[in-house]
Design a protein around this nucleic acid. Sequence first.
DNA 1: TCAATTTTGTGACTCCTTTCACAAAACTTG
DNA 2: CAAGTTTTGTGAAAGGAGTCACAAAATTGA
Lengths: 213, 213
Amino acid sequence: MKYQKIPEATIRRLSRYSRCLEEMEESGEEVVSSAQLASRCMVNAAQVRKDLAYFGEFGIRGVGYHVKNLLNDIKRILGSNKEWRMAVIGVGNLGSALLSYKDFLKQNYKIVASFDIDPPKVIGRVSEKLGKPVEIFHVNRLKEIAKERKIEIGLITTPPSEAQSVADLLVEAGVRGILNFAPTQIVVPEGFVVKDVFFTTILDNLAYLLSNN
Amino acid sequence: MKYQKIPEATIRRLSRYSRCLEEMEESGEEVVSSAQLASRCMVNAAQVRKDLAYFGEFGIRGVGYHVKNLLNDIKRILGSNKEWRMAVIGVGNLGSALLSYKDFLKQNYKIVASFDIDPPKVIGRVSEKLGKPVEIFHVNRLKEIAKERKIEIGLITTPPSEAQSVADLLVEAGVRGILNFAPTQIVVPEGFVVKDVFFTTILDNLAYLLSNN
DNA sequence: TCAATTTTGTGACTCCTTTCACAAAACTTG
DNA sequence: CAAGTTTTGTGAAAGGAGTCACAAAATTGA
């Protein structure tokens, strides 16, 4: 295998494979072929093999892939085998929903702090939801707490008007990854990564497909 | 302009242009060039023009595009000019956050009903949040209410274990569009459309980028 | 009115992604 | 152990998507 640039789409699919493999592992399946995994993930079997080929050889010809091993390998590739420490900034409706979002716990994504301009307002509701409540700090302590708690990813769930200034704070605090739920484009320096989650963009997509089919 | 298949990516970008144009309209800008719009949306100027060219000619050579007209045209193309009637199924933390999600109101996406297995549990919290509270029905009334209220898009925010059966109900009720927040693959017949919003998939993406840069 | 300027719309090119097709490798069975 | 079967890994082909570069169209100003 020679080195090549890895397509963004490949990474997205790896995450999908990872999820499917987890389900398979839970239901006790030990070996899986590229064709089985592909049909489960709604992709082409050659695609599965090619995606994996970017990173090495993981299968046994004539047999397939060991579910457990492949899952580990994919998680190692994605970097989702380690625990990622996250903070939520903006503890409104969406923010507090994320604080108690169960799928984060199953995967290795852990929210270790949260921030708001008006911290006390929601403490009660959040702590009642979880076994171990996530503390809510005032935003002006973001830099301090982010360093202290080694936060690596920030989830921005503020109103759009505040998103860029929160992003600036995160950058200043050295938080290199941002998941932006605020429906506005934010800009960060080289070396930092922003991924947007814009519900209305996805709805626009759906609306287009529904209008034209 | 001859007919061509329109790339999925083009549709996503149109939604982005739409958002930028809205901001421009609000700030009183009347005319915009492809270069300006492009830099604002972080894409190539030729890309903007090509995306639009799939659907016709909207600009004036030597001048640019009229913000207002272009915005209308794009919304018409996307189908986001009409009001879309939606339902939330699964009124947990995420579901109720969506019920009071402000950006839906600004765009033409309206939640007109919600469903849960245990409807009364959250009524108080939801209704207190909004001017006009969204009613919560028992899931077994989904088909009935969906038809009555002309629901076109369903937002699935149940636990993953229930997602497929909820999708089946939506299909049965003739709800053609599904936005799936439950972290599991769901299957629908030809003619129905599912878009997934998997937070952990996006985090996996982020994790990969952070691990390898 | 006409030359200079601006900016669109688009054919051609390049680059990237997916699919195909088959040799190579491992396992199975008699 | 050898022939048959299965399934991987991968070069080559096909298919899409993004960028470039320029003619065409509109405006401006003298």
